[in-house]
């Protein structure tokens, strides 16, 4: 469908949680992402969609892939990009987040891309500064662009995720990627399964509208996609599992463990991978199943789409 078919414009100035989006918003993002995906394959990638705008990358937690992906997306759209690695600067000097934010806002950027270890930090920054904020991961809460790029990747293979059976395996409890994916996939009518030991599941998971498994061989039956999550070592204090080795034997993805899934099952991972903990190296690199590199490629296109749509709304507001 095209934008005209909806007679509806993308209404958002922020992207804090997938719960802010409706299925039409998602279609609009994917329509533009498809466009940028094609452009990104040509030698002439530059655009002036965000020309004159400044995008501030505020990463309070270390990130290579997500920050690089956002930076590349913003630069290809013609924006000026400034990276602030806050983990090493003012936060260490005892300045509150509120003060840091207002100082940065005074420099008149247009869009802040925020990653922070605390739930709600992007929303907090949006409220305190009035700037457009895109959440690049907050605590164990949300990572909406990752969720969107995952669904975009699945959509490109199937046309739609509606009615598809998708399994998420691993550390659901600490995963913002899982929360964003579950939110989007249930909105779009997918059948969601999760599989993890009880210590890595939220206690109220039964109320999330997902089917819960502790046995991977049962969970994978007839799945259209299987998504591994990274073991969040930095968020694990105090023995959620006995060892990485035991985890791999019970919950690791390999050709063997996914053999009861659909024959053309997609294998996904949000990265960075711990090979031999969540996923067997051979499966991760098997082009028949693994779409992990497609996820990375699509990440830039999806982020371009979001930046473009939000940038257009900023211009519209400024003109009004």
């Amino acid at each position: 469908m095209t934008r005209a078919a909806f007679s509806y414009d993308f209404p958002h100035r922020h992207l804090v949680s997938v719960a802010d989006l409706n299925p039409v918003d998602i279609s609009l993002i994917f329509e533009r992402a498809e466009h940028w995906r094609a452009v990104n394959k040509t030698p002439d990638k530059s655009s002036d969609a965000l020309k004159g705008m400044t995008v501030l990358n505020l990463f309070f937690e270390n990130s290579t892939r997500t920050q690089g992906s956002f930076e590349m997306a913003a630069k290809r759209l013609g924006a000026d990009v400034v990276n602030f690695a806050i983990a090493h600067s003012s936060a260490k000097k005892g300045e509150s987040l509120s003060d840091t934010a207002r100082n940065l806002a005074a420099m008149q950027p247009d869009i802040m891309v925020v990653r922070h270890s605390a739930t709600g930090a992007p929303q907090f920054l949006a409220e305190r500064t009035g700037l457009s904020v895109i959440n690049a991961g907050d605590g164990m809460h949300q990572h909406p662009t990752q969720g969107l790029l995952d669904v975009f990747t699945m959509n490109r293979h199937w046309g739609s995720v509606g009615g598809r059976r998708i399994l998420i395996v691993g550390d659901i409890l600490h995963s913002r990627v899982a929360r964003s994916n579950i939110g989007l996939l249930s909105m779009l009518g997918a059948e969601i399964r999760v599989c993890a030991p009880p210590t890595l599941l939220p206690t109220d998971i039964d109320q999330w509208g997902v089917d819960v498994f502790h046995d991977l061989s049962e969970a994978v039956i007839d799945c259209d996609a299987v998504m591994a999550l990274r073991q969040q070592r930095e968020r694990m204090s105090g023995g959620f599992i006995p060892s990485g080795r035991e985890f791999f034997h019970l919950f690791g993805l390999s050709h063997d463990t996914i053999k009861r899934a659909k024959p053309d099952v997609l294998v996904m991972h949000p990265g960075p991978m711990n090979r031999g903990v969540e996923i067997h190296t051979k499966l991760a690199d098997d082009p028949k199943h693994s779409v992990i590199m497609e996820q990375v490629e699509n990440g830039v296109a999806v982020r371009m789409a979001i930046l473009e749509l939000i940038g257009a709304n900023i211009r519209k507001e400024a003109a009004a």
Partner: peptide
């Protein structure tokens, strides 16, 4: 003090 509440909820 303001600074103590000048952080997101979780902090």
């Amino acid at each position: 003090p303001f600074d103590d509440k000048g952080e997101p909820f979780a902090m």
